[in-house]
Every structure is written in structure tokens, then in C-alpha cells.
Design a binder for these strands. Structure first.
Lengths: 334, 334
DNA sequence: CTGAAAGCGCTTACAG
DNA sequence: CTGAAAGCGCTTACAG
């Protein structure tokens, strides 16, 4: 079955390719009724389907953007992607999803491949390790938006949670409930990923606000494979924390697993707040106090920023970092 | 900043475009060392980046596939996408993700758009409502694989869970634990979606296997907004079920929410098994017995099948349905 | 061993 | 109101 092209339609309708093209692009300013109809029937009779690749080559726009996440298995990434996809759908754009797995080499490959594919722009959770690449993008004014993470020295549009505020909300809540010995558990800080850094910073600043001195033993980080041991160590201190802030959902899982396995009563033995609202927060025993991120709003904002760049509506405006407010969801674990 | 094309590289290296193209495609059969070097330096000096769109137009392959899921927010979809993406990555393919939201109109639009974009194939969770479209795809031998769902009458390659077996595993476990009054809750069956139909069928068959008569009042389905009420009704029967099978994770959430809100003790008042392993199963109170699906294996298989079709290695072989075995994860809720 | 030429399927100034 | 022609950036038989 031979592919039907615009030439076939033109022949079948007895007009030129140009006219068919005008018709398809709804530029019928001066087109005769008769001509329109002939083309229309030719299109349906032949089952013509335009080849957008050919159009893209000419128009230099593929109506496609790339989204590079660290890992699509993370709920936050999923929500961000969904928001971006919905936004793109309205403008008839498509999105190519890539998982960089926090690997700078993969990230670089993906960015280059996406550009070779002529995507109109990219939204990425940057690894932060491809400085020259990011700077090159910026110099070229290639449409690009950072999501969730910042890269020091690279002044790119970016959408982030107000991470410090997230930790502050948690500490506020702990203090309000009467806790003074407040610990925090973080994933491994193998690279300087913004949310981790800022949430830890926010935790320290919030403690200071209440004149609570920061205890280094109350802050631990490590790989998930070691996390049970890390939690064990912290809770075995001679003077252990009475409240624990989980830096993200994955850490929260580990803490809950530990509590379950070692019969730690929440919140009596240990109060808990997790950053990231989790699916089971409202029916866990006890229900879980969490700090949620407006993932959909953030994804939408990133898409809007990218489209502004693509449509060159950002001329003259400097790159900006947009901070979104976290929200405390007050339940029973604290 | 003008785009560098293959013509620029050719001029800079003092060779023809053909030769540059040969070089880029690593066909150096007869190429002089000297020539190679000249081209190589030209490429790096100019910072040349090939335009894959142009290549695609000529070669009639975009090295891109489309994946149409019902909703990327579902964990199962996410896992399937991740597996597909990983598989594609090895072959330097990219994936465009679309959410059809169980809307046949959206599904149709997406399939047409993806084809217009010349993707090399599509994997879809079909709505089941675009019969002519599916049949047309099949007639054209367009590379296409159904995921998670079947469409009666359309003989397309498909990858599914052995859904009946999933329900059977659950009923087996309930019976083993001494339960005879076994109910099941399902989402709304507004359209004949394979997993729902088959899981319900499997539940009935498994009951029969144990000579347990099927009680219509023990099987309920409805919208999630009504689900609390539906559960309430079932548990308020004069002779209510003592064990409940949740058709999927979303239903499980609703049952757990109900149990929490109404102080129903699991498993003493009510034993529960959910199809879909959930993130918190191992640290819930009690830990949750679940039936897991091998989502990654299923995604990979779908990608393999699609690639076989794309590479035309499926000539002469009839379309097949691949069934993957569910697995019981024995915990404490039953 | 390398190059000229045609062509992939569109769009778009321009001419008439 | 419509068409001929050039061109988007590649690849690929074919000639030499």
C-alpha cells in the first residue's frame, strides 16, 4: 500500500500541490468553493494523511518538546509530566519523555538526541553536572527550563518548590506540638541536588528560629539500602530525637518500615512529618502529617515558561526562578 | 546564529555532501584516511549537529514510537512506560507518551497525530471503542501492540496479565485462610475493559471451584466518588462478606479508607487482598496481602513485540496474546 | 575513492 | 484565484 502524498491528492483533484497545501492549512482566502470541494473529496477518497515530518523540515518546528526526568517512577515526576502533557495537548504539541537516572552522561546524550530530533524545547530535572552543555544552551537561547533543581551559575528559567519553607512548615508543626528534639533523614547526597540541600538548610534555619541548637547526630543521610541501619543508629542515641522529618516520600517509606519492624509507636514514641504527600497518608495508622508540593501547578508553569521561550515572548526578560509554596496537611503523625 | 548543515561541513572540509553523509553514517569502506580526518575536524570546528528530521524524511523511519496510556498517573502505566523507555533506549529509539484518559475521541486523535508524525509504531492501552481504526491499522500492518486490554474481534499482538488467575490466587488464599464469604469490589464498569471483566470472571470461577455459590450482593462496582457508600452497603448486609477482594489499587485505597474511618479491624473483621502490589503493603497495619503484576516484564515484552513488527520479523506469524502470571505476596491482611 | 543529481513530502514567496 | 519553482537538510543509487 503506497503512501498517499500531497501530489496524489493534487492529481486526483486536478489542482496543484500548492493549492492543496493552502487548503490543508486552512488558508482559503481566495480559494474557489468548487476547488475546495474537489480537494476535500480527494483527501477523503484517497485517505490522505499529511506527513508532519516533511512539514517540520520546512517549517523548522516539530511541535514536540522533550522532558527529561530523573526517574519516571517517582510520583512527583509523573505528576509533573502529566501536567506538561495536558498543557501541550491544548497546543497540539507532543512530549517525548526521557529518564536520565541522575546520570550526567545519559542526560547529555538525551539532550543531544532531542536537539538532533529538532524538538522545540526541553524541560529537564538537571543532574547539574553538564555545565558547558547548559551554558551552551543558554548562549544559543535554546528554549529550556529547569525543573525541581537549580544549577549554580546557570541563569535559566526554573520552577521549584520553596524547599526551605517546606522544612520550616514541618519544624513549625513539630514545635507547635511541643517537640524540641527534631531529627531529619535524607537520601544520599552524592551530588548537590537542590531540593535535598535546601530542605536540609531550611531545617537548620527553622531550628535556629526557635533557638533549638542543631545537633549533627540528628541529621543523617545515606543510600536507601543503608537506611534501616541509619535510622537505627539515630534512634539508638543516648538522647534520641522524638520527632523525625522525612526529606521525601522514599525516606518516609523507610522510616515507616522501621517503625513497623521495631514496634515504634507513631506519634507517641516518634512523631513524623514527611515532605511529599503520599497516597496512603489519609488511611495509615496513624494518618500521616505531610507537606505537599503543588506538582501539577509546577508542571504547568514549566510548560508555560517553555512556550514563552519558544514563541519568543521572553525577549529582554531575564531568566527567573519560580518558587511554589508547599502546604502542610495536618494529620495525626505529629 | 545560523544552523550548521551538512553543506557547511562539506564546504569546510572541501568534500561533497555525499562524502560527509557517508562519514556520518560510518560507511567508510573506501574512504581515505586524509578525507576522514578533514571531515572530522570540520564537524567539531563548526559544532555540526545532524538534523534527524531531514534524515527521517528520507529514510522513512523516525526512530520514535508512541505509547498511549489511559493515565500516566497510574503506577502500573508508569512502570510499563519505564520498561518500554529502557528497552527503546538501547536501540536509540525515543518514546512519545500520550494520555487518552479512556476517551475514544482523544485516543483517535492521538493515534492519528502519532501516525502523521511518522512514529514507527504504537503501544496502546486501547479504549476499545475505535473498532474501524484498529481494524484499519491491522489491515495496513501498521506496527501496533495492545497493552493490558484486548479488543474483541481485533487480532492484534497484545500483552496482558492473566487476570483470571489473579482473582483465583486471591480466592485460593481466602479459602485457605478459612473464609467462605468472599466479596469483591470493582471500579465502575462503564466500558468493557478487559482486566475488570476478567478479574470478575475469575472471581466467579474460583468460587465455583470451591463450591461456593456466587452471591450477587457480594459483588459491587461503582465510581470512586460513590465507593465509600458502596462498601458501606455491602458490609451492612444482614450476612456480610468476611473477606474482600479489591480489583485494583484504587479500590484497595477506598476499602482501607473505609476500614480506617469505621474502625473495621483487618483481618479480624474483614480480610483483604488487593490486586496490584502497593508501595506501603509491607509496612501497613496489618501488612497487606496483594497480587502483583510483572509490569516491567510486560512493558518490555510489548516493546519487543513492537520492534519485531517494525523490523518485519513477524512475517507470517499470527498475532498473539501474551499472558503474564500474577504473583501472590502473602502478608497479614488475609 | 569521491561527487553530481535526484528525491523524501511538504511550504511559501512570487508570478500571472 | 491558482500554479511553477525553489528549498528545508538529509541519503543514496549511480557514474566516473
Amino acid at each position: 500500500m503506497k503512501k498517499i502524498t500531497i501530489a496524489d491528492v493534487a492529481a486526483h483533484a486536478n489542482v496543484s500541490k500548492s493549492t492543496v497545501s493552502q487548503f490543508l492549512n486552512k488558508r482559503y482566502d481566495y480559494m474557489g468553493e468548487e476547488t475546495k470541494k474537489r480537494i476535500e473529496t480527494a483527501v477523503t477518497e484517497l485517505g490522505y494523511r499529511p506527513n508532519i515530518i516533511a512539514r517540520s523540515l520546512k517549517q523548522k518546528s516539530t511541535k514536540t518538546i522533550g522532558v527529561i526526568v530523573a526517574n519516571i517512577l517517582h510520583v512527583f515526576s509523573t505528576q509533573v509530566i502529566r501536567a506538561i502533557e495536558d498543557f501541550c495537548h491544548e497546543s497540539n504539541f507532543h512530549v517525548i519523555v526521557c529518564n536520565a537516572d541522575d546520570d550526567p552522561v545519559k542526560e547529555k546524550r538525551y539532550i543531544e538526541m532531542l536537539r538532533a530530533k529538532q524538538v522545540d524545547g526541553i524541560i529537564a530535572f538537571p543532574t547539574g553536572e553538564n555545565m558547558e552543555l547548559y551554558q551552551g544552551l543558554l548562549d544559543e537561547r535554546y528554549p529550556f527550563v529547569f525543573m525541581d533543581r537549580l544549577v549554580p551559575g546557570i541563569h535559566m528559567d526554573a520552577v521549584l518548590l520553596d524547599n526551605k519553607r517546606a522544612s520550616e512548615l514541618a519544624v513549625d508543626q513539630f514545635v507547635k506540638a511541643g517537640y524540641k528534639k527534631i531529627g531529619m533523614i535524607s537520601p544520599l547526597i552524592d551530588m548537590p541536588v537542590t531540593p535535598r540541600l535546601e530542605r536540609i538548610q531550611g531545617y537548620k534555619t527553622a531550628l535556629a528560629k526557635y533557638n533549638l541548637s542543631f545537633q549533627p547526630e540528628y541529621l543523617a543521610s545515606g543510600a536507601f539500602t543503608d537506611m534501616q541501619m541509619i535510622i537505627q543508629q539515630m534512634l539508638s542515641l543516648s538522647d534520641p530525637p522524638e520527632a523525625l522529618l522525612a526529606l521525601n516520600d522514599r525516606v518516609l517509606f523507610e522510616i515507616l518500615q522501621y517503625a513497623k519492624d521495631h514496634h515504634v509507636n507513631i506519634p507517641n514514641d516518634l512523631a513524623i512529618i514527611g515532605i511529599d504527600d503520599v497516597s496512603f497518608a489519609s488511611f495509615y495508622y496513624p494518618t500521616l502529617t505531610t507537606i505537599s508540593q503543588p506538582a501539577f501547578k509546577m508542571g504547568k508553569k514549566a510548560a508555560q515558561l517553555l512556550f514563552k521561550q519558544i514563541n519568543q515572548e521572553d525577549q529582554g526578560t531575564a531568566a527567573q526562578v519560580y518558587r511554589f509554596p508547599p502546604q502542610l496537611i495536618d494529620r495525626e503523625s505529629c
